[in-house]
Simulated assay, not measured.
Amino acid sequence: MLYFNLNGVIGEKTNDQSFYKNVIGEYCSPLTDYTYQFERSLINLEHLIQKNVYGTMEAYWDVSRVLYPLQEIGLSSESKFSVNDFESLVNAKLPESTFKYLYLNEIGYLISNVQSVVNSILQVLGSFFEEFNDQLLAVLPVDGYRVVSSPRITALISKLNSVIISLGSLLDYAAKLVYEVENLRVSFSSYQKLECYKHDIKHGKRKLLRLNELSGSLFESESSSLTFLKEMRNKIIHDGFLDVNPQVYELRENGELKERFILLPDLNSSGKFEKHGSRSNFYSHETKLNIEIINLVKEIFERFGKTVEELLKLVK
């Protein structure tokens, strides 16, 4: 089996986090185990919320069999209803069970978005490493160290940027989900937006969460990894890239590729970029982003898993 390794050299597995493709073309690595764990936990969470709102799962399924056509209106391209159609529907005098069902649809949609973000992170990361391992990524191989920049490398590094932005989205989705679970609705006399959207909950408003500062969760203010993620996300959003020139370094010996890497600007102990004046791209630590991104994803996933565990306890 061919592995897409973190050092950019395709072939035998060189790291316990290397990626490979399965028989249906999905990118896999040990990180993939988290997706199965999250899927089970989030399904359990959704079922517990449904039971909490309807009293029993049987009651929920009885209503669901009748109201199933409503679940995708305004949430999915599978529904062709207009906003005016939906407004007319929810402004009509509807039974409480229908408003409950619409509410649970929207929580389910929030949970589904979380699962999609997690899957997207892993698949884009796998795609990045497959191309990062391409022997023809840098043409005209030259022995020794060299730096390579090209339109293809710019597009390649954009994949890493996408992963970092999606990790930031996971923080925001987690904050929304926690707030909603902590404030589950008890009155269903009318249609209302989710509480997390009423209060525009994002990770930056984590102080509104009862789980704020929970050890090992996504809401610890002293976590250098969470600070690091936010620093990178903000730099990408405002500056476009982490480096002024998207580029890859590689080492060859006798024409054979030995290593590729992307340098990450220096960080201080709190996870923030080292800065002086207008300058924030210092590289004295020679930190490799292609390695650090795996460590960061792993920690964020572990913290997300801890967060979901606590949500399950809250709903039970």
Rank of each mutant, 00 (worst) to 15 (best):
residue 127 S to K: 15
residue 128 F to S: 10
residue 128 F to Y: 14
residue 130 E to T: 10
residue 130 E to H: 07
residue 130 E to C: 12
residue 131 E to Q: 11
residue 131 E to W: 04
residue 131 E to G: 03
residue 132 F to S: 10
residue 132 F to I: 06
residue 133 N to A: 04
residue 133 N to H: 06
residue 135 Q to M: 12
residue 135 Q to S: 14
residue 135 Q to H: 14
residue 136 L to E: 09
residue 136 L to V: 05
residue 138 A to K: 10
residue 138 A to Y: 08
residue 138 A to H: 09
residue 140 L to W: 09
residue 141 P to E: 08
residue 141 P to W: 07
residue 142 V to P: 00
residue 143 D to S: 12
residue 144 G to C: 11
residue 145 Y to Q: 12
residue 145 Y to I: 14
residue 145 Y to D: 06
residue 145 Y to E: 15
residue 147 V to D: 13
residue 147 V to C: 11
residue 147 V to F: 13
residue 148 V to G: 03
residue 149 S to N: 15
residue 150 S to L: 03
residue 151 P to V: 15
residue 152 R to P: 01
residue 152 R to F: 08
residue 153 I to G: 06
residue 153 I to S: 11
residue 153 I to V: 15
residue 154 T to N: 04
residue 155 A to G: 10
residue 155 A to D: 15
residue 156 L to C: 04
residue 156 L to D: 02
residue 157 I to P: 01
residue 157 I to T: 04
residue 160 L to V: 00
residue 161 N to H: 10
residue 161 N to E: 01
residue 161 N to R: 06
residue 162 S to K: 00
residue 163 V to R: 09
residue 163 V to N: 04
residue 163 V to D: 02
residue 163 V to G: 01
residue 164 I to R: 01
residue 165 I to L: 14
residue 167 L to T: 07
residue 167 L to I: 10
residue 167 L to F: 14
residue 168 G to R: 01
residue 168 G to N: 05
residue 170 L to S: 00
residue 170 L to A: 00
residue 170 L to W: 00
residue 171 L to P: 08
residue 171 L to C: 09
residue 172 D to G: 06
residue 172 D to F: 04
residue 173 Y to G: 12
residue 174 A to Q: 05
residue 175 A to M: 06
residue 176 K to Q: 13
residue 176 K to T: 00
residue 177 L to F: 14
residue 177 L to I: 12
residue 177 L to W: 11
residue 177 L to S: 02
residue 178 V to A: 13
residue 180 E to D: 05
residue 181 V to K: 06
residue 181 V to M: 09
residue 182 E to T: 07
residue 182 E to S: 06
residue 182 E to F: 08
residue 183 N to T: 10
residue 183 N to F: 05
residue 183 N to E: 03
residue 184 L to C: 10
residue 184 L to E: 08
residue 185 R to V: 04
residue 185 R to W: 06
residue 186 V to H: 07
residue 188 F to R: 02
residue 188 F to I: 03
residue 190 S to H: 04
residue 191 Y to P: 03
residue 193 K to I: 08
residue 194 L to W: 01
residue 194 L to Q: 05
residue 194 L to D: 04
residue 195 E to V: 07
residue 195 E to N: 13
residue 195 E to G: 12
